[in-house]
Design a protein around this nucleic acid. Sequence first.
RNA 1: CGGGGCGUGGCGCAGCCUGGUAGCGCAUCUGCUUUGGGAGCAGAGGGUCGGAGGUUCGAAUCCUCUCGCCCCGACCA
Length: 635
Amino acid sequence: MKQSKLLIQTLRETPRDADVVSQQLMMRAGMIQKVAAGIYSYLPLAFRSIRKFEEIVREELAKDGCQELLMPAVLPAELWQESGRWKFYGDELLRFCDRKAKAEVAERRKRGETPDERDFYNFCLGPTHEEAVTDIVRKNVRSYKQLPMNLFQVQTKFRDERRPRFGLMRGREFTMKDGYSFHVDDACADRGYWAMFNAYNRIFSRLGVKFRPVEADSGAIGGSFTHEFHVLAGSGEDAILSCDACEYTSNMEKTEAPQLPAGPCGDRIDLKKDHFCTPGVLGQVEQAAGMKDAEHDGMPITQTSKFYLMQAEFQGSPEASKSNPADAGQDKVLLLGVVLRGDHELNPVKVKNLLGATGLELMEIVEAEAFTGAKSGFMGPVPAEGTRFSELRSQVRMLVDRSLEGAVNLTCGANRTDYHHFGLDPKRDLPGCTFADLRMAAEEDLCTRCGKGRYQAFRGIEVGQVFKLGTKYSKSMSCTFLDELGKEHPMVMGCYGIGITRTVAAAVEQNYDADGIIWPWPISPYQVHVVCLDPGSAEVAGVANQVEKDLEDAGFEVLHDDREGLSPGAKFKDADLLGFPLRLTVGAKGLKEGMVELRDRRTKAVVKLRPEAAVAEVSVARDRIMQELETAGGR
RNA sequence: CGGGGCGUGGCGCAGCCUGGUAGCGCAUCUGCUUUGGGAGCAGAGGGUCGGAGGUUCGAAUCCUCUCGCCCCGACCA
């Protein structure tokens, strides 16, 4: 391919609204262009990378007998109503109505009514396709003999993100491989799950990036399990903790936190109210230092506690509504108090999962101050007399991190501004409280799985997820099969996603330097960049063309920079920016000695060679680069 | 959705406060000279200053509204 004919416009300056490296470099390299917030065109170079990654995905899935199909991007509301997600999926689901529904709205307006058009939305752009695929399978699969079955598609998805950002990594429109499996029972679904888990490991290994499969939070769907696949990159949105001794790797949202004892507290004492006068306190550290009395000149932070007032929201029939059946089905709010050791951080996901809540929010600070009667910094789990907290104490569900189970003599906010209690014994002083793992695990915490290693922290970009769905959709949508006895059962399902465009961006996010992108060989738009420095010279151009042809004949993908009138520096800068793994420079200077130069983009190492040796040398370089990828991939 | 910022040729920006014929760099086109890490000179094309309304003799500039985009936060199978 001649670069002079390629649709590409490199930019010397970074577009102002590009906020992450991958977006900056891909925009500067003329690979992507923004069309609207979170919506991009993939220009020819980027599209080549995307298609290459898709092919890797297809090849690996084919090995597991997965079948590719394509479902519509536009889906009818009825399907989503059937699963119940039409109501539960938020505004990320882009909904709209077709001409029929619009005509209906117009008709009603004519009749003097004032219909809300939103009530007439009857289609959406699919952000995921559980309903659509379940509909297909229930219509076409009846017998256990047809199972298991694994169907997937590579498709443009749309999620109307509140705040699209990070270029291709959190866009609204993106390409995703979404796969769904159907099984006769749990054991079969588990086998399907692990088959996909292994396939994903193969896929990301072939991609040539550093990645980790991590245990993730499976959200509100109980009993299911899930792994996310993360490309490791400093700019990643997710925090990952990985044990340095065993295989345990998990999203920090989920990582089990070891139970750490509170500080050496001595013999149990009574709760001494308003014991410490601690005015003008800022954080926990200052607070601990400021706790002084006759015996203490400050407290160890491990003996302090912190307290959060929260509101948990439930949809449908949560535990909170069980006592009052009249409330079942109604959205419900539960008041929550959470107690942690002073130096620990709250993990809201754990709290949510513990309660089965659909939402969790910190109480507004003003509201909390009115509720407890104390300023921020002095609130605690033991209510002060005469406050609303005191009145409603029995309705506040009290949760205590398990590190404080058995702890005594803790300090806590006194619910009186500028004062702290001393001598808190959660078990004694917080009747009805529940002990559980509620805190965020941290780097260097002892691994809960092997008890030997310590957690190491990484940043990751989530590019894939395997998820055991269970029967959520098959039950709500009656996707059933008949077993050997002719008995009907709902199919057990799994779903498996890979963000194609996000993965390509993540690969860039992990592989670049000050000069530009460094593409991993398997998804580089082209493999070899032949840079002709003197296209005006018939001799030099002739050699460059010959080298291009030789390499292409040998099966390499070549972009030939034959552009005239550019200085060598400009061409080199462009080549570095585009970042193909190998650059082959053909110039008058080198040809005087009969030589061209092969340069490795990543190492910048240069070898001189005769033009006739190009194919051989490029092959050697390719083998070396692929070798390096294999050792770099995975752990 | 809350807080903040920005909308001026394809890209990056100045001009706005203090109203008076829209500018710079990059890119593009032409010519000449250059050619191993973003060349030089000369010339050329390209902008309803996000949109609407208002104030004014006159608005990129002042006022009001609106749309879009970006950042921080919240949210995220």
